[in-house]
């Protein structure tokens, strides 16, 4: 197995190999093919054939299929297992969307309970309150008021104890 394709947050294990007569196949022997012409791509999986539009950026593939754009991200087996290992609740308060810091409500060293408000962020037209994911001691805010960040950025961390 080579790794995983992440589609709509679900991980799909992927294993393809060369087919004996050229082209590719799935582990069960289903043949796969991809043919390109004038911006369109024809994909065949066994008997299923579809025309799609594909754009690749790094390890992300965008596919327009039957009127719907899909974002698919590649994750190698090693990376996937590393993520699963630290998938348990950590103290990082991550940005749920890109935005800017509106207010820092908890100071470094403050003891907080799970659910306590620690920061208010502003994204487009809304203020959103971010809360501590677990009880602990507040670390330094990584972004100052007014500073902007992308989605997923760690904004503040809650340490053990407190």
């Amino acid at each position: 197995m080579q790794g995983y394709l992440i589609i709509d947050e679900a991980a799909h294990a992927l294993a393809i190999r060369p087919a004996a007569g050229g082209g590719y196949q799935l582990p069960d022997g289903t043949p796969l093919s991809l043919r390109e012409s004038e911006g369109w791509t024809r994909i065949q999986v066994g008997e299923i054939v579809r025309e799609v539009e594909i754009a690749v950026a790094g390890e992300t593939v965008w596919i327009h299929l039957e009127g719907v754009a899909h974002e698919i991200t590649w994750r190698s087996a090693i990376e996937h297992h590393a993520r699963s290992a630290d998938g348990k609740a950590d103290g990082a308060v991550r940005a749920p969307m890109p935005g800017a810091v509106a207010k820092v409500l908890a100071q470094p060293g403050d003891a907080v309970r799970a659910g306590d408000a620690v920061m208010v962020i502003e994204s487009m037209k809304l203020e959103t309150t971010l809360r501590a994911p677990l009880p602990g001691t507040v670390g330094r805010a990584r972004f100052a008021v007014g500073e902007s960040f992308e989605r997923g950025a760690v904004l503040i961390e809650i340490g053990e104890g407190g």
């Binding site: 060369p18 590719y24 796969l32 999986v45 066994g46 594909i54 593939v61 596919i63 299929l65």
Partner: peptide, 28 residues
């Protein structure tokens, strides 16, 4: 839809297709 997406992504990603293309035909 899922089958097509997986195939299209796998065959478009250099990270996936490159190593597969490197497998000698004999093994295949």
């Amino acid at each position: 839809t899922l089958a097509i997406l997986i195939a299209a992504a796998a065959l478009s990603l250099p990270e996936v297709r490159g190593p597969v293309d490197a497998i000698p035909k004999m093994h295949a």
